[in-house]
Write a protein that binds this DNA or RNA. Sequence first.
DNA 1: CCAGTAACTTACCACGCGGTAAGAATCTTG
DNA 2: CAAGATTCTTACCGCGTGGTAAGTTACTGG
Lengths: 202, 202
Amino acid sequence: MSDSAPLDGRQQRGRDTRALIVDAAMAQFAESGYRASSLRDIAARAGMTHPGVLYHFPTKEALLMAVLQRRDDEGKKRHPVLGHLGREALAGMARAAAHNETQGAMVELYAVLSAEATGRDHPAHDYFVARYESLLATVTEAYTVARDAGGLRDGVEPDVAAPQLIALMDGLQVQWLMGTLPRSMARIVADHLNTQLVEPLP
Amino acid sequence: MSDSAPLDGRQQRGRDTRALIVDAAMAQFAESGYRASSLRDIAARAGMTHPGVLYHFPTKEALLMAVLQRRDDEGKKRHPVLGHLGREALAGMARAAAHNETQGAMVELYAVLSAEATGRDHPAHDYFVARYESLLATVTEAYTVARDAGGLRDGVEPDVAAPQLIALMDGLQVQWLMGTLPRSMARIVADHLNTQLVEPLP
DNA sequence: CCAGTAACTTACCACGCGGTAAGAATCTTG
DNA sequence: CAAGATTCTTACCGCGTGGTAAGTTACTGG
């Protein structure tokens, strides 16, 4: 809403390097977590010096927030809303797991950061709390809609199934990153959902 | 096997402070992860200065290994072997989840470290790979034994169910630490197992 | 073509890090 | 009680960190 102006040339250039820096920061945070990543590492990846980065983002923390913000924006472009879609939304979670298997850096970023941000003093703590709450609400709604449509087996409770599914996906990512997962994430998620759904997923 | 000697007074004192330091390191690593924890922080918790810590543990990395080693020893005292016990071993996993709910610091340690150790250059990487492989083998065996005893529902495959259960427990811990888990970990794990077992758990 | 601004770089700062060296204190044993 | 080892402290080192100040380059609009 702030960019109502038609952005001339230099504004465009600014945005471009901003995006480049966010790319670099994303990769670096994913590799080493937030605290262990240095602005110099990130700047080198973006082909500049570290005060160059600080020209665009006033602090390291602001850069982290920009990284998280952008991933959210991309996510919302890929699957808008989806909570009310019920069964189809759950199928979308399985597809998301498959998609994640091609996005190692992003997966690593969230796995490392969500664990790091567990501490109340971490700069991204509030962000992740909000994210989990929102995700939980969405998935719970999806299960509820699916159940009301008669798509869930008996005994599957949305309030239990939702945190279960989220936990399953998070935990799988760690094993997958560790290289000890003997099957694909998508397969395991689909199998899990198939124990809950009346009609199995493809 | 190295402490066959009857350890006299001074050896005992050394062991005591060693244990005190490991306690402090455990708490600090849990709060901030390995990389973000300083030897000075740890030393302060143990009531000494940081070279005092380095007298007992030659490097920060050695201290980390001692922390992990001790947790392993304690764990093996709590539940020895257990893979071959089948259904009873799976029930033990649910009880472990309940136990973990009283061990916030330990849970945080493993959640934070396992994510951090995902990177191949992390000092605890090999440790966690070995741990996951061993855990996977144990849980897979437990499911297999349970199935051969006719205790599993149709369609529950040990090779899928094992990484599923491990992932579920890991993921639940993150949500629990984040404070966004709407139910107890033990309840959710038990519900999961009850969709797989012929005879429900208590 | 020149003024001005956006986009950087170089140089620096104070600080905290892991680790080392050397000495002081404490304790055990002959 | 003296000898000797164990345990810990004080003081230091080089290095990398996030952040700042000031100057340089490059481009754009008038």
